[in-house]
Nucleic acid binder design. Structure first.
Lengths: 137, 137
DNA sequence: TTTAATCCTATGGATTTAGTAGGGTATTAT
DNA sequence: ATAATACCCTACTAAATCCATAGGATTAAA
């Protein structure tokens, strides 16, 4: 299951990508428009800012804004920041590989084999999908 | 992340599929060969039996065995039984559809759009992969 | 009748999730 | 300057899920 954190994070990013101009949007605005708990959203946007996807401006008229063109924000990045590794098991993770304790031979492991296929296909989708693609609709 | 339940379940099914003859194999045997906690495996095999994938034989010389040819056991079935719905959000689930409370319009929802793509590609993989495919290696 | 196996229920610790609460700090418009 | 606005940070919690264990009941073969 996708966590609400990720779900809300994607919604917020899309909302920002849909703005005509890239001016700061307040948390409160996004919270209202996308029906997301304000405080929870606050923590999510903080994560996104720390990851380098968003910039922020304090004070009156402040808020969050995208740091890059939506076409250049791939969903691989977004998913990794919000949801964590894309692989469903550590033994097929590209960035966070870990050997399974119980598994003597990865080459013969059915789970390993299956999950490599799943990882590759998901990776393909996330790589081919940008924030701009999702914001279009 | 894939749950251990699913991971162990797939391993157990593969172990059974790799047997020369389809005779009952005890929980203890599978547990040892695949390094899975016996009691946990027990509950998993019970689930698989209740779902109709496995048959069981009680008493001495008893154990679990596949009810169908491994070629006819698709991973869609296995994943749904062990891990639950394949969709990452209920609003794109074929079998367990649920509308999102917060989302006024699915057609414009970025999460919805993205997760449909993910669902479709995963579904394709699970449909095209049988237990026999995984047991080959 | 003994032994070996599944069947079933319950329980508990650990971890994660999805928030909530409350205050602190920085910036900007006026 | 100062009030208003918005970001920043920490801590807490209720609920759910995950992983596993325990113990007994039931069944069937030798």
């Amino acid at each position: 299951m996708l966590s609400k954190k990720t779900k809300y994070g994607i919604k917020a990013l899309t909302y920002l990508a849909r703005q005509e101009q890239n001016v700061p949007v307040s948390i409160a605005t996004i919270s209202e428009m996308e029906n997301i708990s304000l405080k929870f959203l606050e923590s999510i946007l903080l994560t996104l800012r720390k990851s380098g996807l968003l910039g922020s401006k304090k004070g009156k008229g402040g808020g969050y804004y995208l740091l890059k063109d939506p076409n250049d924000i791939k969903m691989t990045t977004v998913m990794r920041v919000l949801e964590g590794p894309i692989a469903m098991v550590p033994c097929v993770s590209l960035n966070y590989y870990e050997k399974c304790e119980d598994c003597p031979n990865e080459a013969e492991c059915a789970v390993h084999l299956l999950m490599i296929r799943v990882r590759d296909s998901n990776l393909k989708i996330y790589r081919e999908t940008s924030l701009a693609d999702l914001a279009k609709y």
